[in-house]
């Protein structure tokens, strides 16, 4: 390894850590793994999360859920928009990392732009989704009857391996926009964009615990996520078939909602928002 740059100054290297409850811890297990670029060169060592890290992340997500869901849609929308602002600001770093993952500079920039725009698109849904997906039901009787979507709760996300940034944003934004909180297992082969994304979140007014990002091995973490009795839904979009099967089996214990089983990694759709909601119907008499 070269210790000194040509200018004679030693680089200060970044330590790549997990993102749990608004903090950046190393894995409690003390483990890390090597992230490589598309040529096989070493990029960095990143934390390799353990089941206990996952347990802490779920605990943080559950604690954050009530307040996050109670915020107004307008407020959540502004926070998502702020994420987009900060992503744009870190665009060059994302593009470089995606380039390391094998994209040409032009395609890397295009993915960053698409990811920022996607975050903006979902930000706009925060105070509109229930206007499309909720409704007044014309029941036969003197009753006011309204159905409206509510967040499901804590959602586990197995992020797609690629596109490393757009895939992560595409699966995460529809989960949090309605008030769910998330535990994300990032791309195993390209974890750096997810780590940069967690640094974006840290500067975006996202309350601690709303989004937790674990780098590591999905095959190791997914079964714990699937079996966890305090996780309400899992997005499988990034899971390889064996992992997907294991998650489906584990999900049965507390009847988790399963999403992303059809393999779209960068879908943009309000129905994806709907997939992480519960519909609540309220009856009330009208009379004197």
């Amino acid at each position: 390894m070269v210790n000194q740059s040509r200018a004679g100054r030693l680089d200060v290297r970044k330590t790549y850590k997990l993102y749990i409850n608004g903090e950046f811890p190393r894995s409690e297990s003390g483990r890390s793994y090597v992230a490589r670029d598309s040529e096989g060169e070493v990029l960095a060592r990143v934390a390799r999360a353990s089941r206990k890290d996952l347990r802490e992340a779920v605990r943080a997500a559950r604690t954050a859920e009530e307040k996050w869901a109670a915020k107004s849609g307008y407020n959540r929308g502004q926070i998502l928009y702020r994420i987009a602002e900060m992503m744009e600001d870190r665009g060059a770093v994302f593009a470089e990392q995606l380039g390391d993952g094998g994209l040409t500079p032009a395609r890397a920039r295009a993915e960053v732009s698409a990811a920022v725009d996607r975050m903006v698109w979902y930000a706009g849904w925060a105070d509109k989704f229930s206007q499309i997906y909720g409704n007044l039901n014309p029941v036969a009787g003197p009753f006011f009857n309204i159905s409206a979507p509510e967040p499901t709760g804590v959602v586990g996300i197995i992020a797609p391996e690629t596109p490393a940034l757009l895939g992560l944003v595409s699966r995460l934004a529809p989960v949090i926009v309605t008030g769910n909180t998330a535990v994300v297992v990032s791309s195993e082969s390209q974890p750096l964009p997810a780590i940069t994304f967690s640094e974006v979140l840290e500067s975006s007014d996202v309350p601690p615990g709303v989004i937790n990002i674990l780098t590591g091995f999905p095959a190791e973490l997914a079964p714990w996520l699937a079996d966890h009795m305090d996780v309400n839904a899992v997005d499988l979009a990034g899971a390889v078939p064996e992992v997907g099967l294991r998650v489906r089996q584990g999900a049965v214990h507390n009847v988790k909602r399963l999403v992303g089983t059809d393999g779209y990694t960068d879908l943009q759709s309000p129905y994806l928002i709907a997939a992480f909601t519960e519909t609540k119907t309220v009856w009330h008499p009208k009379g004197l």
């Binding site: 307008y74 929308g77 502004q78 928009y81 698109w121 930000a123 706009g124 849904w125 925060a126 105070d127 509109k128 499309i132 309000p270």
Partner: peptide, 14 residues
């Protein structure tokens, strides 16, 4: 402005 900004690219859903 914030609210209608979000509709500009979602008219087909509205």
């Amino acid at each position: 402005f914030f609210y209608y900004a979000g509709w500009a690219d979602k008219l087909e859903y509205a």
